[in-house]
Simulated scan of single mutants.
Amino acid sequence: MTDADGLTVGQVATALALTVRTLHHWDEVGLATPSLRTNAGYRLYTAADLERLHRIVVYREIGLGLEQIRAVLDEPEADVALALRGQRDEVTRHLGRLEQLRTGLDRMIEAHERGILLTAAEQAAIFGPEWNPDWPAMARRRYGDSVQWQQYAERSASRTPDQWHEVTAAMTDLDAELAAAMTAGDAPGSERADELVERHRAAVSGFFPVSRSMQVCLGRMYEADPSFTAHYDRLSPGLTSWLRRSIDASARAHGIDPETAAWE
């Protein structure tokens, strides 16, 4: 094609894999305007116009904005290499962000599959000798399709070993205070018991949101599951039952019938 010839907007759009709308926009903003016009008034792109369009497409594909492209093409003093280096630096920063995103996604996937992103040795050091490293896998098999498992996994994905230490220490302190309150004779429904029930719900909500109704269900599960019963009763005989009754009393005080409480 010579400058005496010309291509229509549709022909150029097809040749460069662009849309007619894009070419019209570039024409409107003065970035790439057809140089010829037919007797009927239709605009045509010359060979020189097409070369400019090729350069625009290349620069756009590497991420330059339209104003940057205009400067590179139209300003005689423009430092093209400098502009390209700047874009390269931006691409490098973007790749760094994408790498961080990929790492986060990998951790999220692993957390959904494993529950806790700690080695067996780290789990033993953080959670203590009672901890069974098979428990997360067992929990996933049992609850993996639940919303709560998804919430638990997503929070787990962002937790560091130090943060797990903090969570475990808070739970250990709470367990000790539960045992101390029962031993001191604080009855379910007392001010002290109600305070500890609220702390228990807040602590468990660190893994997934727990409503009062759900907490009632947890109390029932503690009594029914031998591993939970053994854990609490080892701290103080009868603590599992005391905690369940305290949770029930708190629920009643908030208008919830423990007998009809459901997992939400």
Rank of each mutant, 00 (worst) to 15 (best):
A139R: 05
L239D: 02
T22S: 05
T168R: 15
Q150H: 13
R85S: 05
M171Y: 02
A261K: 03
D225W: 15
C217K: 14
T172L: 08
V91E: 03
E51Y: 09
H94S: 11
E195T: 09
R245S: 14
A224M: 12
L64N: 03
Q123P: 04
D257K: 08
R155K: 05
G115Q: 06
G219L: 02
L7P: 00
P237H: 11
R159K: 05
L84G: 04
R37D: 11
A48P: 14
D225K: 04
S246K: 04
N132E: 07
S227W: 02
H231W: 06
A224C: 12
I56T: 04
E223C: 07
V216A: 06
R199L: 06
A13T: 05
H200I: 15
T2C: 07
Q68D: 15
V210P: 02
G206N: 04
G185C: 12
M171I: 11
I56D: 02
G185T: 09
R155I: 11
T19V: 06
L16M: 09
T260L: 11
L64V: 09
G206H: 02
V167E: 13
P237L: 09
T119V: 08
A125L: 11
A169P: 02
A125D: 12
T103P: 07
L73I: 04
T46Y: 09
H25T: 06
E195H: 13
E195C: 06
E51N: 15
R52M: 13
R142W: 01
E191N: 09
A176Y: 02
E110L: 13
P237D: 10
D145A: 14
A48Q: 13
H254C: 06
E154H: 14
E67G: 13
R212V: 12
R220N: 10
Q100A: 11
V204G: 11
